[in-house]
Amino acid sequence: MPEKTILTEEDIRRSLSRIAHEIIEHNRGGQGVVLVGIHTRGVPLAQRLANLIAEFEGSQVPVGSLDISFYRDDLSWRDPPPVVRRTDMPTDIAGKRVILVDDVLYTGRSIRAALDALIDHGRPESIQLAVLVDRGHRELPIRADYVGKNLPSARREEVQVRLKETDGRDEVAIITNREGGGQ
């Protein structure tokens, strides 16, 4: 299948750097902010953003991870069932400014599930959303507050984010499937 690189390692670094600055700007230097990554690739992205915020501001922002398996609206898998990953909230999120972090924003359904999952852990002051790629095709009224790259795509295309922590290298690629489908 034909594959085209959209973001290189250097592009990803710049995008995350900009998002980190935007988070600091919109949240009084990062006070009261908790970064929560959505499994799988949102988790290392959240950690990288926290490292960048620490570098720019000298403040440590707590990082959590969220598995949304139990909150999906499409429970019913052909075999096999998904591997459920660890949900880990580093701190009580009640009254905090939570920033959800994911790799790709597409239909919005994962974010809908993540909002439900998050609110079961407490009532944050606000929830914001940071994504590396927004590829459009929303099916729910959801938008991101911080976007690395807006990437208009066709449904039959697949947007693949690869990260060193999970895939061995940093890259965003678009893959054209011949017969329909998508991510």
Binding site: F70, L75, S76, W77, R78, D79, P81
Partner: peptide, 8 residues
């Protein structure tokens, strides 16, 4: 229950 009820 999760693994059984979720299976198609």
């Amino acid at each position: 229950l999760y693994l059984l009820a979720g299976g198609a």
